[in-house]
């Protein structure tokens, strides 16, 4: 009875608070698609995080073994983490034993706390903890505002187990082995990928953007190098950080490679001509505009980031 009143009180206070979308959010239609046997994902929308989309803008995923479940990126808010957990419980009774974060960005880590009750092992790149420490205060302040009620409950959970560059880690989910690989600076300075050895499915995290404008928060040179490396791999299906899971993954890597190369060559030419950031962001990569979602929001920032990197070549 007491609980009922408490719920009523909470609901009414929410109804009369400016965050009026919360009621619809809790009934949000959150579905997962099966990519291949026992691999599911929820595709994020191509938007920036807000109260309506509860931060569910990146792909989040899980893979079920015979012993337990691994979550690969936990969602863009505590609320998305809860919805993902609910979706997992509908598919299996097996426990979640691993929560793997491809990198620190909020759309990939903010659901971490929703899995605490499962006592999973949280896994990330050896530099994930440092990246999280440096960004935590900034992310908390910014995303509490952007996400409103969906943010409530979000915690910054640091990896229990880390993966180093050149030292892949293999985990067994019960007759199902997955391999986690860490990379040098590319999309960020702490990206990892997950590979399911039996189905040859690769989760790239944000090392691959499909449809949505790639965001450079690491090194354009590093990212070009790694994008090329992926092209030589033997993979059946790719689940990118953003955009649909696909068997035609090579085309997606080629698209990203083309975009990054257009920026790099354009910026290099302007630097060589003693040009400025303003000149570079006015002209470089305009031909890519029709190819990418959210181009207006991210493209010129990418040019700026590349400029300050490439002027030290």
């Amino acid at each position: 009875m007491k609980l009922f009143y408490l719920t009523l009180l909470t609901l009414s206070s929410l109804l009369f608070s400016p965050i009026s979308t919360y009621a619809s959010e809790v009934n949000i239609d959150y579905s997962v698609q099966e990519v291949s046997s026992a691999i599911y994902y929820h595709q994020g929308v191509h938007q920036d995080a807000n109260q309506q989309n509860i931060g569910a803008i990146a792909n989040v995923s899980f893979i079920i073994g015979e012993r337990c479940v691994a979550v690969i990126d936990s969602g863009g808010s505590y609320l998305e983490g809860q919805l993902l957990r609910k979706a997992i419980k509908l598919k299996t009774e097996l426990p979640v034993c691993y929560v793997i974060n491809s990198h620190v960005h909020p759309d990939h880590t903010f659901g971490n706390a929703a899995f605490k009750a499962d006592k999973p092992i949280y896994i990330g790149h050896e530099k994930l903890a440092a990246a999280m420490r440096a960004r935590q205060a900034y992310f908390a302040r910014t995303f509490e505002q952007l996400l409103g009620a969906a943010y409530q409950g979000t915690e910054f959970i640091y990896p229990d187990k880390t993966v180093s560059v050149n030292k892949p880690l293999t985990l067994d989910l019960g007759n199902r082995a997955i391999t986690i690989t860490a990379y040098p600076t590319s999309h960020t300075d702490h990206d990892i990928t997950v590979f399911d050895n039996s189905s040859k499915t690769l989760w790239t995290g944000d090392l691959l953007f499909s449809e949505r404008t790639p965001v450079i928060d690491g090194s354009i040179n590093g990212w070009i190098k790694i994008t090329k490396q992926f092209l030589t791999m033997e993979i059946d299906t790719v689940i990118p950080g953003h955009g649909p899971a696909t068997a035609h993954w090579q085309q997606e890597f080629y698209n990203q490679l083309r975009y990054l190369t257009v920026i790099r060559e354009g910026v290099r030419a302007i630097i060589a001509d003693l040009g400025t950031i303003e000149q570079a962001s006015a002209v470089v990569g305009l031909e890519e505009q029709s190819q990418w979602e959210l181009y207006e929001d991210y493209h010129r920032r990418n040019v700026t980031a590349s400029f300050v990197e490439l002027e030290w070549e």
């Binding site: 440096a134 960004r135 900034y138 302040r141 600076t185 960020t188 300075d189 450079i216 690491g218 090194s219």
Partner: peptide
């Protein structure tokens, strides 16, 4: 956010130079 944003995209590379 330009002042409170975390410094540097690649801390190790920045320190090295």
């Amino acid at each position: 956010g330009g002042c409170s944003a975390p410094a540097g995209k690649d801390a190790a590379a920045a320190l090295a130079r």
